[in-house]
Nucleic acid binder design. Structure first.
Lengths: 218, 218, 218, 218
DNA sequence: AATGAATGAGCGTTCATTCAT
DNA sequence: AATGAATGAACGCTCATTCAT
């Protein structure tokens, strides 16, 4: 039987094998994501993930070499979401900019969710730790370069250490409002933004930048 | 007959029961500590700990009800070491004070070592997470009250939010130089102290405090 | 292409999944049965049962939640076989009736075999003891009511205590010829029947009933 | 140092080594007995028995080669108590004699208590089963010979099978009032005695024997 | 003789992974 | 390509027994 006839029969609705496979892969990733988040990595079994995805146990291993690999796939495309976005410091009132940046970031983090299992994993998967470390280093660099620009324009504290500062910003953002076991009070994005601004800009610069902002709006 | 000879005959090797038991317990704790640190909590089995300590599996269970209990014993007297010390803000140059405080803290942390497995544990042992959470909340409170005092004396930024600030200080200290997966550069205690001071004190106050310090020294 | 050829090619060896699973389950049950009988319940481990059945340890747990459950499956449909049948006292010569009843019962018991482990189990599984106890109570009741009928028809000893008697019959039957550790001689069904009859009927009634039997046959 | 001096010092209160050892042995046996009865043989550990007896674990193994041996010692001197006493059939009213015999027996059984763990043990200790079997056979013989004597004196049913009968008596007594999982009603010694008498003696003989009894009393 | 800490084989059970269908 | 039954190593833990003191 020629190919053509086959196609004519089955074409519409039509899923090429690749696509169907991609769908299954997607289902597995989604299930892994859901289960890792709700029960933790260790307590989730490959069998569970498969059955939650509506496929057989063995199928899991057609798409992923093992449980760990699924996790890595999971992180792959969501990795950047775990990390704070690169702020742009000089376009308008930095505080306002930061606030919206932070709010967006935390909303995404909450959506991604996976951040709750990461500590468990990093502790026992050095490779994963490495992957994450690299990503963080990239973010760190981008924050650093942003700060450097601002510093070159004379906007920041003159004696500021760019590296330390960008590390501090990163750490603060990463340990922001969502982290569990926090110290009672929920951290507020507005206060956080204000704090970060104080670390970067002297008060008079901040006032200046804020005024510009208003002028631009007008 | 001199003491020395006596010792040579009957005393050495001589360990009263209790002491021998304590030695074994110690060996197990040490092995647990070493293995938890090197392989992570999960990947360490009770059998391994026992054999690393040079005792049989069953012996492990004479001293500890299970792996978790050994861990708790491990943490028990070291818990406060994981947490940053309470800074005193107004006695002299805050930056100098902070630097020595931080250095001491990180030295202790490095000694304790266990901090590397904590994230993994917190993730899967809610009780432990709770214990740690409480301790952190206490530290948070003490930082807050210190800041409040300083604020009442007009030493700090007037528009500073004490809660947010003490949270930030805590987070920064906890994620300090030692944390793995850091962003390339090692964080320096001096820079960190300087950053924290900037978050708390306006530059002129800081200068003032520093001067007082010098005067006192003279 | 005729069916026959098709069969020869694809069907043998062919076992639908279900059937294969059932076979394995069967093999496990059989192995459990054999090992329980030969070594006793306690001394038989799940691992042994599995390897005796030619499957891996884990396979055992696919089919049974644990050793006890396998046992219960073993008993499930055989329970009634452990217990004596309800005799019918007035249809013909009671002795003949009893003999065949007893013989059937003991043959079945021997087939079931499991009765040899029951005492051990009852001793340590209160739930099972309860199940068995209930079944015995039912049998006891049915024997009692049969005796009562006979008594009402004036066939039995007039001063007979129905309860005690039915208990005695039950106990005798249960501890019949097959029981281990017996006192040397094997108990004979004929003699047993004769003894039970003597406990129930006065000699003259027995003679009468026997005569009727003959008349009916004629 | 001569023996004499030793004695003078230690003599009163004086326990020769043997006696002290015997005391410990006794304590262990008692503890084993108590614990076996309350928790069952399997669930009782050697350590428990030792500590219940107030001695060290190791001491247990000085007196008994293992747990099983303690059990056997336990049975040794109590064995005959598990088994029904040999009735004497011709001295007076057999029913009265039997009743008191049975009552004594069951009281003793209750005291011995151990009968509750026996089934568990017999199932998995063939040697023990053998020991018990032998004892039972002895009792069986003695009952048989008693019945034989009575039969020779023409006191019993003439067509009675002595073997079967003595087996029946034994079984009934052994499964008497105390057995667990019984059929609701408690069995009464009086009724039991009456039943046994009916199995042995024709009514008129029984009446006769009872009359003699009265005459003897007068 | 007595101690009780130490032993380690072995239990029941789980689950990542394989493989016959 | 998909299935899911089967695998078996490894886990945490117990306890009868040994042995150094």
């Amino acid at each position: 039987m020629p190919d053509g006839e086959d196609k004519l029969v089955g074409e519409f609705p039509f899923f090429p094998k690749q696509e169907r496979a991609q769908q299954k892969r997607k289902a597995l990733i989604d299930s892994g994501y859901a289960l890792f988040n709700s029960k933790g990595y260790d307590l989730t079994t490959a069998k569970e993930i498969a059955s939650h995805a509506g496929v057989a146990t063995g199928t899991f291993y057609r798409y992923f070499s093992d449980k760990r690999q699924l996790l890595l796939s999971l992180l792959e495309d969501k990795l950047e979401n775990f990390l704070p976005p690169e702020p742009s410091w000089i376009a308008g009132d930095p505080e306002t900019v930061l606030i919206s940046l932070l709010e967006t970031h935390y909303k995404r983090l909450e959506e991604v969710g996976l951040h709750r299992v990461l500590p468990e994993l990093i502790a026992k998967d050095p490779e994963l730790a490495d992957v994450l470390g690299k990503a963080r280093r990239k973010i760190h660099e981008s924050i650093t370069s942003g700060l450097q620009q601002a510093q070159e324009q004379g906007l920041t504290w003159s004696d500021m250490d760019v590296d330390t500062l960008s590390w501090a910003i990163m750490v603060l953002v990463e340990n922001g409002p969502d982290k569990e076991n926090q110290c009672g009070r929920k951290i507020d994005c507005k206060e956080m933004a204000s704090l970060i601004c104080r670390m970067v800009f002297p008060p008079e610069v901040l006032k200046q930048l804020r005024k510009q902002e208003i002028e631009i709006q007008e």
